[in-house]
Deep mutational scan, measured.
Amino acid sequence: GPMASDKRPRTAFTAEQLQRLKAEFQTNRYLTEQRRQSLAQELGLNESQIKIWFQNKRAK
């Protein structure tokens, strides 16, 4: 629909990254900035991508 703007492409996470994020989520529903930074480095992701993933996951 018209609401779907092309400005922010959805990140396609790899299965491996998703597995890691899910495991982290089961341990911590809320990430500290430090955890998020190390996860971002570990997974080669953007911190904001991880932050948003957690927000979306909590919203469900």
Rank of each mutant, 00 (worst) to 15 (best):
Q55V: 08
T14Q: 03
T27S: 13
A59Y: 07
K57N: 08
N46D: 11
Q17H: 04
R8C: 15
I52G: 08
F13E: 01
Q34V: 11
T32S: 11
Q19V: 11
A40E: 03
L39W: 01
R10H: 14
L31P: 13
N28Y: 04
D6G: 07
K22P: 00
R10E: 15
S38N: 10
R36T: 11
S38L: 13
L43T: 07
Y30V: 09
K22Y: 12
Q37R: 13
T11F: 12
G44I: 03
Q34S: 13
L39P: 00
T14W: 02
K22R: 12
M3T: 15
L31F: 03
P9L: 05
S5M: 03
R20E: 02
R20N: 02
Q37D: 05
P2H: 15
L18N: 05
Q17N: 03
Q34E: 10
Q26F: 09
Y30Q: 07
R36S: 11
L31N: 02
K57R: 13
S5R: 02
S5K: 05
T27P: 01
N56S: 09
R10G: 15
S38M: 11
R8D: 15
L31H: 02
S38Y: 10
I50Q: 00
L31Y: 01
R36E: 07
E42T: 05
K57V: 07
K7D: 15
K57T: 10
R35F: 05
Q41P: 01
G44C: 06
D6M: 02
R8L: 15
P2K: 09
E24A: 06
F13L: 08
S5F: 01
A4W: 14
K22T: 13
L31V: 05
R36G: 09
D6Y: 00
T11M: 10
R58I: 09
Q41R: 13
R8G: 15
L21R: 00
A15T: 11
F13A: 02
E24K: 01
R20W: 02
K51M: 12
A23R: 09
I52W: 13
A23P: 00
A40G: 04
N28F: 03
A23H: 09
E47P: 11
G44H: 06
N46K: 11
L39K: 00
R8I: 15
P2I: 07
T14I: 02
E16T: 09
Q17M: 05
F54Q: 01
A40V: 04
L21K: 00
D6T: 05
Q19K: 12
E16R: 08
F54E: 01
Q19C: 08
P2C: 15
K57C: 07
R36H: 04
Q19M: 13
L21H: 00
M3Q: 15
N46A: 13
E24H: 02
N46H: 10
P9S: 05
I52C: 11
Q49D: 14
A59P: 04
Q41E: 10
